[in-house]
């Protein structure tokens, strides 16, 4: 398993990276490399140029902008896990990162790479949908922002245009009367999810004021279970409603069969993970 030859670029800045990306034919961004390099070793991907973002300090780091948590795109999974800001303002991301791959891979794998790669098996996209995150993107024409909702268009297909680089992820706070749940079923450490579900909700008294459900690896891309959200929004969520929502989650799924399971299993697991995530979210919101 040896990659084909390519030219390696170490840009000095994000601007420089964007320039290299636009000047060179068949160039790819190298973030953590744990999706891209294996694909290159299998020669499923044979880029002529690799632009390595690992040296760019401006893409690292976690900060607060008001109450919005801002995470540099090149922040690694282990940096998320270790960050006091993340623990305090978005512990959901700690739970998510801990279940990504394994310790070594988490030292290389970046949250931006995970999101931008467009792989439905990656964990952060559905989480970003549930968190209602926003992505900061820089391109030849400057900076723009795009909501997670609507960003994931298909397998390896996102709202990131050619020649653009994701620089930051902005996560609004989960309200004080809110809660989250994250459940991921996988075969073993290092595997992608068979199915995963992230639920973020906000209560108004006993009633569910807002809810977002993000699903992992049960469709060509990360998706929201909107019909289930609509069912639950404004309701006092009980087990009967959760059951109905689970049915709607199953209807939203469009998974591909593989060794993790057939369509039926993955669909049922998306529902089961969602049941658990809703219960967890309610428990957290109520506590």
């Amino acid at each position: 398993m040896i990659p084909s030859g390519f030219e390696y670029h170490r840009p000095s800045s994000v601007q420089d990276a964007i320039r290299l990306l636009n000047e060179n034919e068949d160039a790819k961004i190298l973030a953590g490399g744990h999706s891209l390099l294996p694909m290159m070793k299998l020669r499923f991907a044979e880029p002529a140029h690799l632009i390595d973002l690992n040296g760019l300090a401006e893409l690292k780091g976690i900060r607060l902008d008001g109450d919005t948590l801002c995470i540099g795109a090149m922040t690694t999974e282990n940096e998320l896990i270790d960050s006091d800001l993340v623990k305090q303002h978005c512990p959901l991301l700690v739970d998510v990162a801990k279940l990504v791959a394994d310790p070594q891979v988490r030292n290389r794998g970046t949250v931006g790479g995970d999101v931008a790669h467009g792989d439905p098996g990656n964990d952060h996209p559905a989480v970003m949908l549930a968190l209602d995150a926003e992505f900061v993107i820089q391109g030849p024409d400057g900076e723009r922002r795009q909501a997670a909702n609507g960003f994931f268009l298909g397998t390896y297909w996102t709202g990131l245009e050619e020649g653009e680089v994701m620089t930051e992820i902005r996560i609004p706070p989960i309200p004080a009367n809110g809660g989250y749940g994250y459940n991921k079923l996988k075969r073993k450490t290092g595997d992608y999810a068979t199915a995963g579900s992230t639920v973020v909700l906000e209560l108004d008294g006993a009633s569910c004021k807002e809810i977002r459900i993000g699903l992992t690896n049960v469709a060509p891309m990360a998706i929201r279970a909107e019909a289930a959200e609509d069912l639950l929004r404004g309701q006092n969520i009980d087990e009967a409603l959760i059951e109905q929502a689970a049915e709607l989650v199953m209807q939203a799924c469009d998974p591909a069969e593989d060794l993790r399971g057939d369509i039926q299993y993955k669909t049922h697991m998306a529902a089961e993970m969602t049941r658990r995530s809703i219960r967890d979210a309610l428990a957290r919101a109520g506590s």
Binding site: L30, G33, Q104, R108
Partner: peptide, 12 residues
């Protein structure tokens, strides 16, 4: 930090 050197380029 621990890394898997089969998935890191020497250049890095």
């Amino acid at each position: 930090v621990s890394v898997k050197s089969c998935t890191v380029l020497a250049m890095q």
